[in-house]
Design a binder for these strands. Structure first.
Length: 151
DNA sequence: GCCAACGTTGGC
DNA sequence: GCCAACGTTGGC
């Protein structure tokens, strides 16, 4: 099994929004970065995901989800009304992909970015690299465990 | 709101 | 293929 981290702005879609969805699952649409897309295509059913809140008063890891459907075309890129519309995508040659994720748990409290930076076990974590802007990225099993142990 | 650090685009 | 200009992300 592999581990991942996915960022979401809680104003747009929070861990609580995931809980409120039917079946506590949701398709992760709107990723428009090739590296992030490629990571999503590597995801396997059952992989676990750290749910991260970004661009908010307290950025950090807030919960865990799992992959319940592997990568398939992100249909929002075909919809001219969508803000994720991409005229260069087509049904025959989809450009963007998404996965479905399902809620697993919410942490008792947010493990903040600040704390992550202070944990020596997490040195080298991709999230903490300077200038990192990826919204989807791999997490080492040891990092995943270390973060959950911080709660 | 600022700004660093990217990624993308497009002219050449 | 280079690179300047531009747009976006995301912490602060």
């Amino acid at each position: 099994m592999n581990y991942w981290l996915m960022k979401s702005e809680p104003d747009a879609f929070s861990i609580d929004d995931l809980v409120a969805r039917p079946g506590k699952r949701e398709h992760w649409d709107g990723v428009r970065n090739y590296q992030a897309r490629n990571f999503m295509r590597e995801m396997k059913k059952g992989d676990e995901i750290l749910f991260y809140h970004s661009s908010c008063p307290e950025p950090g890891v807030v919960g865990v989800a799992k992959v319940v459907k592997e990568a398939y075309p992100d249909f929002t890129d075909l919809d001219p009304e969508s803000k994720y519309y991409d005229p260069k995508s087509s049904e025959e040659k989809p450009r963007w992909f998404m996965v479905d994720i399902q809620y697993k748990k919410k942490l008792k409290r947010t493990v903040t970015l600040k704390e992550l930076k202070q944990n020596p076990q997490l040195e080298g974590m991709q999230l903490l690299r300077k200038g990192n802007r990826l919204s989807v990225m791999p997490v080492a099993a040891s990092e995943f465990d270390a973060i959950l142990a911080m709660v």
